[in-house]
Design a protein around this nucleic acid. Structure first.
Lengths: 161, 161
DNA sequence: GTCTGAATGCAAGATTTTTTCGTGCGAACG
DNA sequence: CGTTCGCACGAAAAAATCTTGCATTCAGAC
């Protein structure tokens, strides 16, 4: 897990490669090479460079939550009482550490945090709120929105032309 | 892209495999096999079965948005004027079709939709709102929360023990 | 007790990834 | 103005991985 994170510049080849990997990272490098007009080793080197630079953060399988018993997706807005840097950081760490919290954003506006939570049942969600929100004296209030439909769920980034 | 989607049952081997793939799908099957006490071919067959069943929906590379010029992540709540099934469906299709919309949930509560949007600049976001919200006569109002920190962003699903 | 279906491990074969090596191009330098 | 250095490339070989065929085992049905 090296985090060189050196700032490298991406040319149109890199962007084309990312575009493909973002949709299917099991695509053979040879096929990618044909698509972008490069040899397989060249593609390989660029991918490795982008991985080392942290541009490619991970290679993962996307799992359908409903098929593994996680039937409910919930969006929660959390508002804190006190907003000191330390308390914010503490909240960040706490939220991030919870497996059921798929995503956590620290945001401007009325709420301080927006969480996307995945749980098997509403009972499990209730237990989570008890632990995470009622159990945290710095949480002023939270607003729950249950997802009736996960219309679109991905992490694909729109890439510049 | 075959979508058999036949309902198969997952045993603890499958769950263990999913757990690994969800973190790193470039893990060699031999290594997975050692971790879960199965031979590499057995692992391979299980993975393929889960892919065909739609449990594994995709294999993708996760890209750091900031490193490809998409500097701003925004959470938007959208409230519609009229909530007929048709208008809801139309909105779903419209939102889902936009590349900048990374995620879209149709939710209960005050808002009807929650979107996670990724854009390079606030100017680009403004243009998007104009096109998507002001340009849609069925949008009553929308509330923008700009992410100051993407504390946690993934699609990993908490798997049952 | 025997049969059938499903899943396994092993081993061979096909494919892919990774390394090695030599070449070409552009910038820095003498 | 020529040389050298760094960098990325392609081709080919080497290593690793993935895939498939086949015999075996095990659980449940008959």
């Amino acid at each position: 897990m090296s985090k060189s994170s050196s700032s490298i510049t991406l040319d149109r080849f890199d962007l084309a490669i990312l575009h493909i990997l973002q949709q299917d990272n099991a695509t053979p490098q040879r096929v990618i090479g044909e698509a972008v007009n490069l040899s397989a080793p060249a593609v390989q080197r660029r991918i490795r460079r982008m991985e080392e630079a942290g541009i490619i953060q991970a290679n993962v399988a996307i799992i359908d939550p409903a098929r593994v018993g996680q039937l409910i997706t919930i969006v929660v807005e959390v508002e804190l009482i006190s907003e000191t840097a330390e308390l914010i950081d503490a909240a960040k760490r706490e939220f991030a550490a919870v497996p059921e919290v798929q995503q956590c954003y620290y945001v401007t506006g009325e709420a301080d945090f927006v969480l996307v939570v995945v749980v098997p049942t509403m009972t499990a969600y209730e237990a989570l709120t008890r632990r995470l929100f009622f159990g945290n004296s710095n949480v002023k209030r939270f607003r729950t929105s249950v997802a009736m439909d996960r219309v679109k769920a991905g992490l694909a980034v729109p890439l510049p032309a």
